[in-house]
């Protein structure tokens, strides 16, 4: 059994003295683990840093086996990530959330594509937070907790949308909210891809996606807490407000 694919490296664990077990998010095979022989060696360590784009060949006798990877580096993103505090926090948040949310061996082609595009923007601190916010929306969509921001859940109107229901994830217009407005989450324009998206609005958007990640997605995955890395990214981003 053998396949070849491209993948984003999510995490590395030592295996034995010089080997490593890597967790990669691949284009056609989803999140997939495998052993890299010599993966913890001095030569391979710089290549096997989280976020690296790899050309992977996976081999195993049976599909259910852990299998062995041959990994060739395509792009290293560690240098770009280490160049700025926000970029590094962002990279950690993306890799930790992908590891946390995605089941193994289930393809998520759209999310993979968005993740690759997002990570290629690392180091561009002016663009990155908004791209990250939209990536979280895609992540929620892919794992079954997508937000419906097209029209108001109460009136059906498409304009004047100002809130989002913390339970259903559907948009609510100002008129539709009425007296319930204080129980709803604010819906910043940038979540709908409208307007110039100032940092303050992005921070509000992160609070909204954070609510659905923490209160809806995490409990559905066995009540494990969301990885700290996301909170650290949000905290780092909040410092520049």
């Amino acid at each position: 059994m053998e396949w070849r694919d491209q993948g984003i490296l999510l995490s590395v664990r030592r295996h034995g003295e010089t080997g490593a077990i890597i967790d990669a998010f691949t284009s056609a095979h989803g999140r997939h683990m495998g052993v890299v022989r010599g993966g913890a060696s001095r030569r391979s360590t710089p290549m096997l840093q989280p976020g690296a784009q790899l050309d992977l060949t996976w081999r195993a006798r049976l599909p259910e086996h852990l299998g062995v990877y041959r990994a060739e580096p395509m792009r290293s993103r560690a240098a770009a990530a280490m160049s700025s505090r926000l970029a590094l926090a962002g990279l950690n948040a993306v890799t930790a959330l992908l590891s946390f949310c995605l089941p193994e061996r289930e393809a998520h082609a759209a999310l993979y594509q968005r993740s690759e595009q997002l990570l290629d923007l690392l180091g561009q601190d002016d663009l990155w937070p908004l791209a990250y916010l939209h990536w979280e929306l895609v992540l929620l969509e892919e794992v079954g907790f997508g937000l419906d921001l097209a029209c108001c859940a109460v009136t059906g109107e498409t304009g004047n949308l100002a809130y989002i229901s913390p339970r259903s994830g559907r948009a609510v217009s100002r008129d539709g909210a009425g007296d319930w407005a204080h129980r709803l989450l604010p819906l910043p324009d940038c979540l709908r891809g409208i307007g110039p998206a100032p940092d303050k609005e992005i921070a509000e958007g992160l609070r909204v996606t954070g609510h659905f990640l923490t209160d809806h997605l995490a409990p559905a995955l066995g009540n494990n807490p969301l990885p700290d890395s996301r909170a650290r990214f949000v905290e780092t981003f909040a410092r520049r407000l």
Partner: peptide, 11 residues
Amino acid sequence: LDDGTITAALN
């Protein structure tokens, strides 16, 4: 050298 080290060295 890997490209990350070269980038860091150049910076």
